[in-house]
Amino acid sequence: MIKSRLADEHCGIAQSAAVLGDWWSLLVLREVARGHRRFDELAGELDISRKVLTERLSHLVAHGVLARRPYSDRPPRHEYVLTPAGHGLLPVLVAMQDWADRWVLGDGTLTALTPDGAELPRARDLPGSRVPAGLALPSTRGEPLDVVGDTAWTVLFTYPATGGGKGAEWPRIPGTAGCTLENRLFRDAWPDFTRAGATVHGVSTQLPDEQAAFAAAEDIPFPLLSDVDLELTAALRLPTFRGAQQLRHKRTILLIDADRVVRHSIYPVADIPAAVTQALSLVRR
């Protein structure tokens, strides 16, 4: 037993489990990533006792995963934010979510779509979710941009990836084809979205330089945002799949208002032209 414990001292999995190997600790991190940073918000979202929540927050702060930040002097109040170490755990949370979507909630099928007859309530319930304030992602404009624009509406569409170089596996995954088509359709409809008072953002987990090369080649007029660190994915618990050794977005279209609240979602996106037309109709309406 002693020998085993000494070996675990040098095992990254064991050390990670010592910090995160608890149901409530993982769910606290999930909610902080979603933008619920204050004690009462966390208690309400998690339906957790205040004693247990206090213990878990103290544990995560002590291990450098969360930091306490004051937001009120009278009375003294603090909120909890992710540290760099906490941000580094977002891909772990998303990978756990993706694994459960496929192997626990799903039938094990590797797909960029929702299988026929299956349902993903989390995606269906996206309306009402809020994009955390200050969530900015690397963009094809050369600097991080807020996910939510400064117009009445933001139309945000997520897609798996554009371009080649994804290996032999990629074409065999259902739902991966159509990313270039979707970008072109939003490009062609972009003047109509603009006249209707909407900002358009495309989002994938590709690297910014890959997105920039595609945007230049296709003359994409709106910014493409890189969620390579999965911050947006974790914040909204977006549906993903693993393709070409990387977590990728499944195709989703969100309509977000000026208060950063998702008001409409289109998921799954099976008919891409119809979905783009539907998004424009919703903005106009």
Rank of each mutant, 00 (worst) to 15 (best):
I2V: 09
S4W: 11
A7D: 04
E9Y: 00
C11G: 04
G12N: 02
Q15Y: 05
Q15K: 03
S16K: 09
A17S: 09
G21V: 01
D22F: 04
S25H: 13
L29K: 03
L29S: 05
R30E: 13
E31S: 09
V32N: 02
H36Y: 04
H36M: 04
F39E: 02
L42F: 08
S49R: 00
S49N: 02
L53H: 03
L53S: 06
T54S: 13
R56F: 02
S58Q: 02
H59P: 01
L60I: 00
V65P: 02
V65C: 03
L66A: 01
P70F: 01
Y71T: 00
Y71L: 00
P75R: 01
V81P: 04
L82C: 08
T83F: 00
P84E: 07
A85E: 05
H87F: 09
L89D: 01
L90M: 06
D98R: 14
A100Q: 13
R102E: 10
V104T: 14
T109A: 05
T111D: 15
L113F: 14
T114C: 15
T114P: 10
D116M: 09
D116P: 11
A118W: 11
E119H: 12
L120M: 15
A123W: 12
R124P: 10
L126W: 15
V131E: 04
P132K: 04
P132S: 04
P132Q: 03
L137P: 02
L137K: 03
L137Q: 09
T140P: 08
T140K: 09
E143V: 05
E143S: 11
V147H: 07
V148Y: 05
D150A: 11
D150S: 14
T151H: 11
T154S: 14
V155T: 08
T158V: 11
T162I: 12
T162G: 13
G164M: 05
A168E: 12
W170E: 05
W170V: 03
W170M: 02
I173S: 15
G175I: 05
T176C: 13
A177C: 11
G178C: 01
N183L: 15
L185D: 04
L185W: 04
F186M: 00
T194A: 15
R195C: 08
H201Q: 08
H201D: 05
S204G: 06
T205L: 07
Q206D: 12
L207N: 14
L207G: 12
D209V: 13
E210V: 09
A213C: 09
A215C: 12
A215K: 05
A216K: 12
E218W: 13
E218G: 12
P221R: 08
L225Q: 10
S226C: 06
L230V: 10
T233P: 14
A234T: 10
A235M: 08
L236P: 13
R237M: 12
P239F: 15
A244F: 11
H249W: 14
R251S: 09
R251K: 12
T252A: 15
L254M: 03
L255S: 10
D257H: 06
D259L: 06
V261L: 07
R263Y: 01
V269F: 11
V269A: 07
D271M: 01
I272P: 06
Q278C: 10
Q278P: 02
Q278I: 02
A279K: 04
L282S: 03
R284P: 07
R284Y: 11
